[in-house]
Amino acid sequence: MRAWTLIRFYTVFVYIFMFAPIAVVLILAFNKAEFASFPMTGFSLRWFERLFNDPTIMRAFRTSLTLGLMVSAISTTLGVMASIALVRYEFRGKDLMTTFLISPVLVPETVMAVGLLIFLRYLHMPRSFGLLLLGHSILALPFVVLVVQARLVGIKREYEEAARSLGANPLQTFFSVTLPLLLPAVFAGALFAFTISFDNITATLFWRPSGMETVPTQIFGMLRNSISPEINALGFVMISVTAGVPLLAGGLARYFGRKNRARHPTRSLT
């Protein structure tokens, strides 16, 4: 029992470490002064006002959202397929392939960005949204592979073999057995891919077409002038939206789910 308590305290400590900076961002969003610093000079909503009156940020937000969702779709699809090949099959050159799939992580982003640009020049292709999409997908792919692979290793093969022996074809087996078991990993991979795209700055600065801003590049532009609490206000809004929506949705789901489960008690066994 004592060990578990210790683990719990340790975890709480780590979460505090993770969230101290976030808390600071949230608090300073309401600071009155020009500078984001302590002690606070007063409570003010003026940074939010400025933020919401800034159409460029709203546009950047939409760009980032669209981009992130498309990136996570692409890289998760590619990543899951590759991971299944790597974990489920024995073949020659497997180690090499694993290394190869993870290799994009090794390339410093500046290098990757410039390299891809040089390559595009040879193809006579201008920078575009498509380049950002492909580039981000490549940046996210290794993470998806790593996450999904680690999960897949833990899934017992017997389940699949049982399904096969019961007459399911490989595709049926995948969709009815492997995929449900894999879903948490797929989800984690997709979320990872989304966040990597959503948070990327270094490569995006190079790849984005002129006039297109994502949230990080927009923030970067704001930072050039001053580290104003408006940025913290943006952080506040982003946290509220990204954490608030799922929390609310989760609460609602539980509410309806409980009703549902009461009607179909067997579901809770699966």
């Binding site: 300073l28 966040t195 982003m238």
Partner: peptide, 26 residues
């Protein structure tokens, strides 16, 4: 909660350490 910090820009997150450990920090 673990992934949430990613949704605030990496730069903001890094800068926020200045607001904690700096002269004007928490």
């Amino acid at each position: 909660l673990l992934i949430m910090p990613f949704w605030i820009s990496f730069i903001i997150r890094t800068l926020s350490w200045i607001h904690i450990l700096g002269h004007d920090g928490a």
